[in-house]
Nucleic acid binder design. Sequence first.
DNA 1: TTAAGGTCTATACTTGGGTATAAACTCAAG
DNA 2: CTTGAGTTTATACCCAAGTATAGACCTTAA
Lengths: 150, 150
Amino acid sequence: MAPGAFKMRDLTEACGVSDQAVRLYERLGLLEPVGRTAKGYRLYDASSVETVRFIKQAQRSGFILEEIKVLLRTDIRDEHACEAMKVLLDRKLRTLTERLVELQGMKDVLHSLRQACEGEPGPLCPAFLKLCVPHCAVSDPKGARPLRRR
Amino acid sequence: MAPGAFKMRDLTEACGVSDQAVRLYERLGLLEPVGRTAKGYRLYDASSVETVRFIKQAQRSGFILEEIKVLLRTDIRDEHACEAMKVLLDRKLRTLTERLVELQGMKDVLHSLRQACEGEPGPLCPAFLKLCVPHCAVSDPKGARPLRRR
DNA sequence: TTAAGGTCTATACTTGGGTATAAACTCAAG
DNA sequence: CTTGAGTTTATACCCAAGTATAGACCTTAA
């Protein structure tokens, strides 16, 4: 067992993920063990911990595993690959920004709704649908997908 | 067909959702048709449109359908039910706030990463993992779930 | 040396929120 | 009265990102 290398359990404890998740990342091509023991046990090192943490952080930020793979695999010497990453980053930055605006909007709505709840314990609350729906109507029909599917 | 009532197609077009989704919401208890024609066609009205729009907006804000059901069903005369809604709102407000902070953080990271990408097309980029991972390490191990599951 | 616990592979199942398809029935226009 | 679009039910499938389980093998401490 190479110096500084450790087995599955240490990795999962360092990162707060399950061993199954780690093996899933491997199957999907996001994380390769640095080696195997003679008996076939996966070996990891500090860089593996970094990688898994990066995966989790990127996930929390709305990247899916397939996209994170692109992020992780981009070879800096490959002009073409780099370009793909830039595209991905730009796309994500855009949706991230939209998402932030949207969440902030809903936070405001929930906040005032919560306030209303706190007031008179009666006729204020039922207005909650009315309180929210106008906001929905204003924001253009994002969820709108092309219908007419038959 | 009651005045002001309309059928599935009008509802889906007004809200930008599929008919299947609408029937799913019904199965899950979020949306009841206001009636049925003699032949069994579902009938909706303006309030149905409001409800579906509310569902979509709430979804975009991170509520899952099961939670939206609580929001929609809360009977204002029921002290107990109202309390449950307050709890739900508080919980959501908290996670929404956390989420906003997290996303803003990642937005900043992606932004500087994107900038770095744009600079020298060479030795700047490889630092990208290092650029991100410290940020991950700082934010406490949120994803940490209890392990030791066997 | 044996028992507990770690790891391996492989397969199946879960959840959330849908979509796809089939087969039957209905409605409206030509 | 036929044809095409709309609707109904029911069942199956999809994706993402895992979790659960089984059965085999390995490691370590008592």
